[in-house]
Amino acid sequence: METSNDSAGGDFILVGFSERPELELALSLFVLMFYTVTLAGNTAIISLSVLDTRLHTPMYFFLRNLSVLDLCFTTSIVPQMLVNVWGRNLRISYAGCMAQCWVALALGSTECVLLAVMAVDRYVAVCWPLRYAAVMHPRLCHLLATASWASGLANSSLQSSMAMVLPRCGNRRVDHFFCELLIVVKLSCVDTGPTESRMLVARLIILAMPVLVILLSYGCVARAVLRMRSAEGRKKAFGTCASHLTVVSLFYGTIMFLYLQPKDNYSQDQSKALAVLYMVLAPTLNPLIYTLRNKDMKTAVRKVMGKEPA
C-alpha cells in the first residue's frame, strides 16, 4: 500500500497512445523515421559548421548551438517513447521522469532565448554590416550562447523544483508519452492552482521576452530593408534573415497551436498528437531549412562531398 505523501520514489506509468493500439505502431514508425532524419540532419549541420572554416561566423556558431539543442531535445524523449511502445513496458522511474521533465523544459526554454539571440545577430548583420565583425566578436557570441543555456537551465530548475515538492498520494498515471511537467504537477492530490500560477509566470517570461526581442529586431531589419534603394540589396538582406524567420515561425507556431487551444476544443489525444509534431517536426526541418535556403551551407556540403574545390 502506497503512502499518502510519496513525492519521491516509485514508477510512473506513461499512458502514451496505449489506449489507441491501432495507431500506436504506425505513430512510433513515423516518429522513428523523423528522429533518424533529425539525427542525420543536425549532426551534419554541426559537423559542417566545425569543419568548414568559411562557416566559422557568428550565424553558424549559433546555428550549431541550435542543432545541439534539437538533438538533445528529441533524444531526451523519443528513445523512451519507442521503448515503451515496442517493449510494452509503460513504466518510467521517478528519477527518470523528473530528469525528462527537467531536460525537456530546459532545452525548450534555451531555444526560446537562443532564437532571440539569433534575431539580434541578424539585426546587426543587416543594420550595421560594416561593424558586424567588430560587434559580434567571438567572446560576445560565447557569452550570448552561455546566457541562453543558463537561462533555460535556471527556468527549468525553478519550475521543476516546484513540481517535485508536491505530494501525489499514489497518483502515477501520466496521460502522455513523456513526462511533461504540467501533467506531472496535476497528479498532485493538493490544490495546484498557486503552483501552476507561478509556473505560468515563469513560462510567460521565458516566452514573452525573447518574442519581444525578435519582434524589435526584425522591426528594425524591416525598416532598414525598406530604406534600401537597390533591389539586389533588399534581396540579399532578406536572404540573410529568411531561414531564421522560418525557424522562428515554425517553433512559435507549433508552441502556440499546442498550448493556446480554446478549453472547449481541448482533448488530451489532440494534445498528444500535436506534441508529437512539436517534438519531431521543428528539429527535423531546421537543418533542411538552413541547408536548402543557404548558399554557404550548400557550398560546404558540396565541398565535403568532393564536388567543390577546397
Rank of each mutant, 00 (worst) to 15 (best):
residue 213 V to P: 00
residue 188 S to K: 07
residue 189 C to M: 10
residue 174 V to N: 02
residue 135 V to D: 03
residue 296 D to H: 14
residue 202 A to C: 12
residue 222 A to G: 06
residue 56 H to R: 14
residue 143 L to M: 07
residue 25 L to R: 15
residue 53 T to N: 09
residue 73 F to V: 01
residue 189 C to H: 10
residue 117 V to R: 07
residue 10 G to I: 06
residue 133 A to Q: 12
residue 50 V to L: 15
residue 299 T to Y: 09
residue 156 S to P: 01
residue 86 W to P: 04
residue 214 I to C: 11
residue 64 R to K: 15
residue 259 Y to K: 03
residue 186 K to P: 05
residue 162 M to R: 14
residue 258 L to C: 04
residue 196 E to C: 10
residue 211 V to G: 04
residue 77 I to T: 03
residue 253 G to A: 05
residue 20 R to L: 08
residue 103 V to R: 03
residue 197 S to D: 14
residue 126 V to K: 00
residue 31 V to I: 11
residue 284 T to C: 12
residue 289 I to Q: 00
residue 193 G to E: 14
residue 87 G to I: 12
residue 241 C to W: 02
residue 105 L to I: 10
residue 101 C to D: 07
residue 39 L to V: 10
residue 77 I to D: 05
residue 63 L to T: 05
residue 232 E to L: 06
residue 41 G to N: 02
residue 104 A to K: 07
residue 269 D to L: 15
residue 143 L to R: 10
residue 183 I to E: 15
residue 22 E to T: 06
residue 83 V to E: 10
residue 114 L to W: 13
residue 138 P to Y: 10
residue 174 V to R: 08
residue 68 V to W: 14
residue 37 V to L: 05
residue 191 D to A: 03
residue 109 S to V: 02
residue 15 V to N: 08
residue 237 A to Q: 02
residue 149 W to G: 07
residue 31 V to Q: 09
residue 51 L to W: 11
residue 109 S to P: 00
residue 108 G to L: 01
residue 253 G to H: 03
